[in-house]
Simulated scan of single mutants.
Amino acid sequence: MMAKKLCDKVTVAAQIAVSDVVAIKDAGYTTLVCNRPDGEDLGQPNWDEIRGAAEEQGMATSFLPMSNREDALSVVAEFARVVENSEGPVFAYCRSGTRCEILWNMAQAHS
C-alpha cells in the first residue's frame, strides 16, 4: 500500500483492501475516510466492508464519495470538519489518492 503524507494530520492513498485496515490502525491513524464511490470498478471493496473493519479496530469513519467538481464542492466542508475533529491522524483513500489530495487542498484554501 503506497501512501502520501500531506501533513502531520492527513495521509492519502489509493484504494485499500479490508486486510489493510489493521496496518492502518497500527500505524497510528484514528480516522478512515473514503472519497471513492462504491461500484466505481469491478472488484473494488465496498465502503460497508472497509467501514466494518475500521470500526472493529475502534477507528472513526467517514464516507465522502466524490467523482466530479460538484461532488468535491459538496463534501469539502465535511472533509475539513472530519480532519479538524479527528482525535488523531486521518487516513483518506480513493482510487489513486488524487481526489483525497484535491479535497485536502480545497479545505486548506477555504480555511
Rank of each mutant, 00 (worst) to 15 (best):
K9Q: 13
A23F: 04
K9P: 00
S62G: 02
A109I: 04
V83L: 08
E70V: 12
K4G: 02
G88R: 02
N46Q: 13
R99S: 00
N105W: 05
A107N: 04
A53W: 06
E49M: 14
E55V: 12
A27R: 15
T98I: 14
I102N: 10
I24R: 05
T31N: 10
P65C: 04
D20N: 11
A53P: 13
E84F: 04
T31R: 10
D20W: 08
T31L: 06
V22K: 15
K9T: 10
N85V: 01
T11G: 01
G97R: 03
D71A: 06
S19F: 04
N35P: 10
M106S: 06
V76K: 11
W104M: 04
D26T: 06
V10F: 00
M2S: 14
K4E: 06
V12W: 00
V75L: 09
V90A: 02
A72K: 04
G97A: 01
Q15T: 07
F63M: 00
A60E: 09
V22G: 12
H110S: 15
T30A: 10
Q44P: 01
S19C: 07
D48P: 02
T31P: 10
G97M: 01
K9A: 12
D48I: 11
D48G: 11
E56C: 05
I16D: 06
C7R: 04
V76W: 05
K25S: 14
G43A: 05
